[in-house]
């Protein structure tokens, strides 16, 4: 009897979660699908944001996430390798790094945005300008590179934690087998452990990308632009971004009601992009699991 009520409770709870997701998806698809077209995906907004498309925002989002990935994956993966393979679990430094990672994950994203403005734009950027550009504001203003680095900081904990988990899932026996052949710790780590964990590491990278692709707050002050006709061509150019564009369309356009179809279309594009990234992550995870399962058979 108690079992039956528990089953019912979990079923209702699950139904609420799935139901909410379906309502959101249906609403977005119903209102957004009609505006999706080749022009919408490539053209710049026009006519007071009531016509045109989101081409520059898609380009900006792509450029931003690629740069962020290039920044976050090497640093995150190397940190995770150090934590999992080299640091003694009880060492002070390792505990300090772990604590820092956990705290970093809990910082609100708007705080990352302010930090990016204060640290990257105003400190590093202006320092660069003084040192190399004769004080002319070149890097000392919001731009693609600073937004990407700010996002990289935000997604760093995701990469570190997921990569460390992937490395820890590699059985100790496999490390021992390599060491017992007279391989060094370094050879064992990079030729056996990391290849074995590659599926998990890739998954973590993609999760970080999909998380970063949808974030708006960290790029508000560090590089995102309200409206740009030209695509960014330099690391210090400002850029448009899908997430920020949603915010702009919803609150800043001259006539919010008339931009609503554009708004839904933009949300749909953002959702589809994030969804596709997650699908890729899941596919990689399944394929890795299959490879590992066949190793045990």
């Amino acid at each position: 009897m108690r079992d039956a009520s528990l089953v019912a409770a979990t079923a209702i709870a699950s139904a609420i979660v799935v139901g909410m997701l379906l309502v959101i998806l249906l609403d977005v698809v119903r209102s957004g699908a009609s505006v999706i077209s080749g022009t919408f995906l490539t053209a710049a907004p026009s006519g007071g944001m009531q016509a045109g498309g989101v081409g520059p925002a898609i380009f900006g989002t792509a450029a931003l996430t690629i740069l962020m990935t290039v920044a976050v994956v090497p640093v995150g993966v190397i940190t995770a390798i150090w934590l999992s393979e080299y640091a003694r679990p009880d060492s002070r430094l390792a505990r300090a790094v772990r604590l820092a990672v956990a705290n970093l994950a809990g910082v609100p994203s708007i705080v990352f945005g302010l930090f990016g403005l204060g640290f990257f734009v105003q400190t590093i950027g202006r320092g660069l300008d003084k040192a190399a550009y004769g004080g002319v504001a070149t890097y000392g203003k919001p731009g693609l590179i600073w937004a990407a680095l700010t996002l990289a900081l935000l997604t760093m904990p995701v990469v570190i934690v997921a990569t460390e988990e992937a490395l820890r899932a590699v059985p100790r026996d496999l490390r021992d087998a390599s060491l017992a052949l007279g391989a060094t710790k370094f050879q064992t780590t990079f030729q056996v452990v990391v290849p074995q964990a590659m599926g998990g590491i890739l998954t973590s990278a993609i999760l970080a990308v999909s998380r970063g692709a949808g974030e708006v707050a960290p790029i508000l002050f560090t590089g995102a632009a309200y409206f740009l006709v030209e695509l960014p061509t330099h690391l210090n150019d400002q850029f448009m971004n899908l997430g920020y564009h949603v915010y702009v369309l919803a609150t800043q356009s001259p006539d919010v009601d008339k931009t609503r179809p554009q708004l839904y279309g933009t949300v749909l594009v953002l959702l589809v992009l994030t969804f596709l990234l997650n699908v890729v992550a899941v596919v990689i995870r399944i394929r890795t699991r299959k490879a590992l399962a066949s190793a045990r058979a």
Binding site: D173, L174, L179, A180
Partner: peptide, 15 residues
Amino acid sequence: RRRVGMVFQRPQPFP
């Protein structure tokens, strides 16, 4: 370990 090799209970082929 180059002079004294070891084979473990459960085979652990490398990927």
